[in-house]
Design a protein around this nucleic acid. Structure first.
Lengths: 205, 205
DNA sequence: GCTTGTGAATCTCTTCACAGCG
DNA sequence: CGCTGTGAAGAGATTCACAAGC
């Protein structure tokens, strides 16, 4: 659901301005800074049961906490990264520092020479140990950056080992039981779409 | 619009099976292989004005051509890559070989030591030459892989130089005239969303 | 005047269901 | 039959618009 994404975006902005004065924001400010509309902001916050104050808006620190209660697992979620090619290695630093709740705790690659290394604080394992490590670390979220031909099987192994959400970068259709959330980020398709709209766009506008 | 993405997906699958027998597919086969429904496939093809044959389905090579006519620029689109950090460098090989119509022809980075190099067949320029190269090469599509703090300004410079579509990987809101298509692929937000749904998913399903 | 909260209207996208055809 | 093409219905998401409160 798109609401979940917007809540993440709201929170990112709120964290930037937390601690400053004033200590609250209006729906129109939040909308302006996150690329949506005031009505949408109010509807989203209503939906998660967060109430503002007439005339004062929404308390910033309270709202950050409320979005956290709604979105986050209390103890954070350990994440697996499967596939240490160019893209996989590029993604590691994204989560090495930044994210308080999502931490990549294990990486896997079919190339056994990568096993045992530690990249950006993340331990690398051979693909054969995938199920064992996923179970041991109770990992339920995975990022898939293997080649398209290997994506389906990797996704099935992850699911069998207990993973319930997969962020897939491989240009491949992954069909899993609907209890597993799969989101595919297909760079080629996104670029084709953008090129399509760019082409029908006026030269000056 | 989502239809554009689905057309890309259809085409990718059709190319895989092109040249094999039979030379046509049914809407239910195409739907099955691309993760949608037969009615959706028929609606999408209707929308681009492609007609099938009752009982025989849709001619594969004709459909590939029709989708190409609809989606692609006849001569292909030159693409710029802005930001040669980990992610930017990881994306170059994606388009170096594969794509017949989208080719990264120029890369930019604020680090002048990267200028002049050629990575994956793509020439690197200093950031200062951005406008000049974009105009010279008539680039209208760009991939943005700079840090979040630099994203907005880079996007504005690209737009001023003639770019009309941006695939943005920076976790930043980019606001541009609506004639410019911006698609943000925000990995952190995608992962937060997946973790959210994974958490409410049953352990066995 | 300014806000928020929200029912109702609207817009967009998807699916149904069936006529028409081979 | 089993298929496509499509009007009509349905489902979801967004926006409108206004009551209520400061």
């Amino acid at each position: 659901m798109k609401r979940i994404e917007r809540l993440s975006v709201y929170r990112r902005f709120l964290r930037e301005i937390a601690g400053q004065e004033p200590s609250s924001v209006y729906s129109h400010e939040l909308a302006e800074k996150t690329g949506t509309t005031p009505a949408q902001v109010r509807r989203d916050l209503m939906e998660i049961g967060f109430a503002g104050h007439t005339k004062k808006g929404y308390g910033i620190s309270e709202l950050i906490a409320a979005i956290g209660d709604y979105l986050d697992s209390p103890d954070g979620d350990p994440v697996a990264l499967v596939g240490l090619g160019n893209l996989g290695r590029a993604l590691l630093p994204f989560f090495a520092d930044h994210h308080p709740k999502l931490k990549i705790v294990a990486a896997f690659d079919s190339d056994p020479r990568k096993a045992g290394r530690v990249i950006c604080g993340c331990r690398c394992y051979p693909a054969a140990e995938l199920e064992e490590v996923i179970r041991r670390e109770k990992i339920r979220v995975a990022i898939l950056t293997v080649p398209a031909a290997a994506a389906r099987k990797a996704a099935e192994r992850l699911t069998a080992a207990g993973v319930r959400g997969i962020l897939n970068f491989a240009p491949a259709l992954i069909r899993l039981p609907k209890a597993v959330t799969v989101e595919t980020m297909d760079i080629t398709i996104a670029l084709e779409k953008i090129a399509f709209f760019a082409r029908r766009s006026p030269d000056e506008g």
